[in-house]
Write a protein that binds this DNA or RNA. Structure first.
Lengths: 214, 214
DNA sequence: CAGTTGTAGATTGGATACAATCCACAGTAT
DNA sequence: ATACTGTGGATTGTATCCAATCTACAACTG
């Protein structure tokens, strides 16, 4: 009866909580993650923690060594470069495959999201911008029939870098203009252009980010 | 003291055992994987099984639904198309990034492997061919500094499709000729050509495979 | 007879308890 | 002094137990 609540299991709640902590920098790179500590800290047993950690390992946010434990992965500028490269290429392919299967409702929702983001920027509500931006990208890909690549894109979007760009105020404006250009390409049913726009959009973000880290 | 034995933990042993069972078709697509059954069958508790299943989920070999359980993923020809597309693009990038960091020993080992594969073909030892082919591809990528993409390539190579192409005898001959062409491109330090060769090599395999499934 | 409700069995999710492993440091021998 | 050994504490890996959830089928109601 509930809409899209996949958050029933404890593991998922723990996972999102830990992910946030890492993304926001509350848990710093290199920091050891001791299962017992986290368990008592969050008021659950070690089991959900373990599985959450393995999920985060798959997302590349933590590293697990057998019998040694987990720690937050340190992130080099090389890693960021790789991440944005992969994401740009994959999302480009995904939206191209998705385009022709988007419904009118999808299209309207996308428009709505772009307008919301304009509002977010005006109000300086970066939290909301991040959410809307995420939904925009995922919705734009939703028509793609290929599953693996969609999962990868989702991981890359939800990983830590989603939040970082929003810390650079100027870039959000440019970003949303690019979103509008994507919708135009969508209306003109031009998959090649759309792919290029998406790829450029993400690479640009990645570049400003790496430049910022110097 | 031991070389590269990361196989100490039970989970890992269980994981590789289950993976084999799925790849070889001993566990068939759609088949439900009940934790208790597997546990008693393998003489361990449910815990290692659980974590193994999640590992296999990450590799795309099983699907897990909360509170419902795991089952071997059925594979459509669409999935194969996607897999080979992704693998070809990724490996192309990876070998391009890897090329200039390969040592002379690496180069010699690659030559060795190609010759071994020729022998495998002559003797019809497909098991050995698969192993050597895997090592060839991984070694060719080993110089790449990007980690995420290497992990993905490894997963794609080790996933079930590694074994299938070897079932088509004719294709192995062509494959190994293409391997030799790659080494030539390597010697000529032509990353673009190398990337193209790799991409084509994998796409061709994928295409013959999909054609075979009709 | 269709549809709903409820109950039992099966199976997974989570908690607790125990075993194996690692790590640091102290003590000893050379 | 240095290198080796071993011992204790910390932490992860594995097993077992209990609770939550799902599924199927039967009984009840309209």
């Amino acid at each position: 009866m509930k809409a899209v609540m996949e958050f029933e299991t404890l593991q998922n709640k723990v996972t999102t909580k830990l992910r946030e902590a890492i993304i926001t920098g509350n848990l710093k790179p290199g920091e050891r993650l001791i299962q017992d500590e986290l368990a008592s800290l969050m008021g659950v047993s070690r089991m959900p923690i373990r599985e959450a950690l393995r999920d985060l390992e798959r997302e590349g946010l933590v590293e697990i060594l057998p019998h040694k434990g987990a720690q937050v992965t340190g992130i080099t500028s090389d890693d960021i470069e790789e991440l944005y490269f992969l994401r740009s290429k994959m999302e480009a392919v995904t939206v191209q495959k998705s385009m022709n299967f988007l419904t009118n409702e999808d299209r309207e929702r996308l428009q709505e999201l772009v307008e919301k983001m304009d509002l977010d920027i005006a109000l300086g509500d970066m939290e909301s911008f991040v959410e809307n931006n995420k939904e925009f990208h995922l919705l734009l890909q939703s028509g793609c029939k290929w599953k693996k690549i969609k999962v990868l894109c989702k991981q890359y979007i939800e990983g830590y870098p989603a939040h970082v760009p929003s810390l650079i105020p100027d870039t959000t404006l440019v970003s949303n203009e690019e979103h509008k250009a994507m919708l135009k390409a969508l209306d003109e049913k031009d998959p090649i252009l759309l792919g290029q726009l998406v790829e450029h959009h993400i690479m640009r973000t990645g570049n400003t980010l790496t430049r910022l880290l110097e």
